[in-house]
Measured scan of single mutants.
Amino acid sequence: LQAFIKTLTGKTFTVEMEPSDTIENLKAKIQDKEGIPPDQQRLIFAGKQLEDGRTLSDYNIQKESTLHLVL
């Protein structure tokens, strides 16, 4: 599935991932794409901060969901 990552500066980019991917995997993909170390990334979806060990499906993240990236 493709999801949108929106930063506080208003920049939006897309990442490809599977519902079974962990938040940790997602942070690694963001690092590959944007060069931001995972330990500096905080991802917010539906008002909740996402925990590394959980999966996208745990948070009911669907295709074309928008996640907010806070540094």
Rank of each mutant, 00 (worst) to 15 (best):
V15W: 02
A28E: 09
Q41T: 03
T7R: 08
E64C: 09
L69D: 00
K11H: 13
G53E: 09
E51H: 07
E51V: 07
D21K: 03
L1R: 05
L1E: 04
T55A: 07
K33N: 05
T9N: 13
K48S: 09
T55Y: 08
N60M: 10
K33C: 06
L67Q: 01
E18D: 13
L43C: 01
S20Q: 09
D32P: 01
S20G: 12
L56H: 01
S65H: 10
K29D: 01
S20N: 13
T7C: 10
K6R: 12
Y59T: 02
S20M: 10
F4D: 03
N25M: 15
K48Y: 09
I5D: 02
P38K: 15
D52E: 08
G35A: 04
F45D: 00
R42V: 15
Q2A: 08
I30T: 00
L50S: 01
I44D: 04
S20D: 12
T7L: 14
I44S: 10
K48V: 14
S65G: 07
G10C: 05
A28S: 10
K27S: 01
Q2K: 14
T14P: 05
S65E: 08
D32L: 13
E16H: 10
Q40D: 07
N25Q: 14
H68I: 15
E51A: 08
S65W: 06
A46V: 05
G53F: 11
E51I: 08
E24F: 14
K33Y: 08
F45E: 00
N60Q: 08
L43N: 00
G53K: 11
E16Q: 11
Q62C: 06
D21S: 08
P37L: 06
D32Q: 14
I36V: 08
T14I: 13
I44G: 02
A3P: 07
E18P: 03
Q31V: 04
E18Q: 13
L43M: 02
L67H: 01
F4H: 12
I44R: 05
L43P: 00
L67S: 01
S65P: 07
G35T: 02
T22C: 03
T55C: 05
T12S: 10
Q41K: 00
T66R: 07
Q49F: 13
K29G: 02
D39Y: 12
A46P: 01
L8E: 15
E51Y: 05
V15A: 01
T22Y: 06
Q2I: 15
S65Y: 09
E51W: 04
K48Q: 14
H68Q: 10
H68K: 05
H68N: 08
T55K: 12
A28G: 08
Q41R: 01
D21V: 03
I36F: 12
D58V: 03
Q31E: 09
R42M: 13
L69Y: 01
L56R: 00
I23H: 01
T55M: 10
I44P: 00
E51C: 07
F13L: 06
I23K: 00
T7F: 11
L50Q: 01
F4C: 09
Q41F: 15
P38M: 15
L50D: 01
L56W: 06
Y59E: 02
K6L: 10
L50W: 03
S20L: 09
G53S: 12
S57R: 11
Q41I: 12
T7P: 05
Q31R: 13
I61M: 08
Q2W: 12
K63S: 15
Q41G: 02
R54S: 07
I36N: 02
G35P: 02
Q62R: 10
T7V: 07
I61Q: 04
L26E: 00
I44C: 12
P37C: 06
K48W: 06
S57F: 09
L56Q: 01
R42T: 14
P38T: 14
I5H: 02
Q49T: 14
V15E: 01
F45N: 02
T12Q: 08
P38C: 08
K6T: 13
I61Y: 06
I36P: 03
K27A: 01
D52K: 04
L67A: 02
T12K: 07
E34Q: 10
Q31S: 12
R42H: 11
N25F: 12
L67K: 01
S20A: 09
T14Q: 08
L43A: 00
Y59F: 04
K29H: 05
K33S: 09
T9Q: 12
L69S: 00
K29C: 04
I23A: 02
I36T: 08
R54M: 12
K63A: 15
E64W: 14
K11N: 07
T9W: 15
V70E: 11
T22G: 03
I61S: 04
T55V: 08
A46K: 14
F4K: 13
L56K: 00
K27N: 00
F13I: 09
D52H: 05
L26A: 02
I36H: 10
I23W: 02
N25L: 13
F45S: 03
Q31I: 02
T9P: 04
G47I: 02
L71M: 10
F13D: 00
Q31H: 14
A28Q: 13
D32Y: 10
Q40K: 12
N25S: 12
K11V: 07
E18I: 11
D39I: 08
K48I: 15
H68M: 14
D21N: 06
L1Q: 05
I30H: 00
D58M: 05
T66N: 05
F45G: 02
E34P: 00
K48C: 07
V70W: 11
E18Y: 14
T14E: 06
K63I: 08
P19S: 11
K11S: 07
N60W: 06
E24R: 14
L8S: 15
L1N: 06
D32N: 10
K33H: 12
L8G: 11
V15I: 14
L50Y: 01
K63D: 15
L1I: 15
T22I: 04
L1K: 05
L69E: 01
T12H: 07
D58S: 14
L50A: 02
L69R: 00
E18H: 14
E16S: 10
I36Q: 02
V15K: 00
L26T: 01
H68D: 07
R42D: 05
P19N: 08
Q62S: 13
A3G: 04
G10S: 03
I5K: 01
K33W: 07
A46Y: 09
L26G: 00
D39V: 09
G47M: 03
T7N: 05
F4S: 07
I5V: 08
I36C: 04
Q31D: 04
E64K: 11
E34W: 15
T66C: 06
E16D: 11
P38Y: 13
A28R: 15
E64N: 15
T7Y: 14
Q49A: 11
L71R: 07
L50E: 01
G35M: 04
G35C: 04
A3F: 15
S57K: 11
G35R: 05
E18M: 14
I36D: 02
P37T: 05
L56C: 03
D39R: 10
T7I: 09
G47A: 03
E24I: 10
P38W: 11
E34K: 08
G47N: 05
H68E: 12
F13R: 00
D21P: 01
H68G: 04
T9M: 10
S20Y: 12
I30L: 04
L71E: 06
S65A: 13
K48M: 13
Q41A: 04
P19Y: 13
I23R: 02
E16G: 07
I23M: 03
F4G: 03
Q2S: 10
E16I: 12
E51N: 06
S57C: 04
F45Q: 03
G47W: 04
I61C: 03
Q62E: 11
T66S: 06
L67C: 01
K27Y: 02
K33A: 11
N60H: 09
K48A: 10
G53C: 06
S65Q: 09
T55D: 03
L67E: 01
N25H: 13
K11P: 04
L67D: 01
M17N: 02
A3D: 02
G53V: 06
V15R: 00
K27Q: 02
T7S: 06
Q62W: 09
L56E: 01
K63Y: 10
K27M: 03
G47K: 03
E51M: 09
L56M: 08
E34A: 13
M17I: 14
Q62A: 11
D58K: 02
N25E: 11
S57A: 14
G10N: 04
N60L: 10
I44H: 10
P37Y: 04
D52N: 12
F4Y: 12
I44E: 08
D58T: 04
T12A: 07
K27V: 01
T7E: 03
I30N: 01
I30Q: 00
I23Y: 01
L69I: 12
L56Y: 03
L69T: 01
E64R: 08
K11W: 11
V70G: 05
D39K: 10
Q49N: 11
D21G: 07
Y59V: 04
T12Y: 09
K33G: 04
T12L: 10
K11M: 08
K27I: 02
L69K: 00
E16K: 08
E24K: 13
L71H: 06
Q2G: 05
L8I: 13
G53D: 11
I44Y: 15
D58G: 03
G47S: 04
A3V: 15
D21W: 11
Y59W: 02
F13Y: 05
E64T: 10
D39F: 10
M17P: 01
K6N: 07
F45T: 02
K6F: 08
T66E: 09
I30K: 00
S57L: 11
L71T: 10
K33V: 13
K6V: 14
L8A: 14
P19H: 09
E34H: 11
P19A: 11
P37S: 08
L67I: 15
G53Y: 10
L71P: 07
D21L: 04
I23S: 01
G35N: 06
G47H: 05
L43S: 00
T66M: 09
K29F: 06
D21A: 08
T22F: 06
G53P: 06
S57T: 08
M17C: 13
A3L: 15
E24Y: 14
L50I: 04
A28T: 09
P19T: 09
I30M: 01
S65N: 10
P38E: 07
I61R: 03
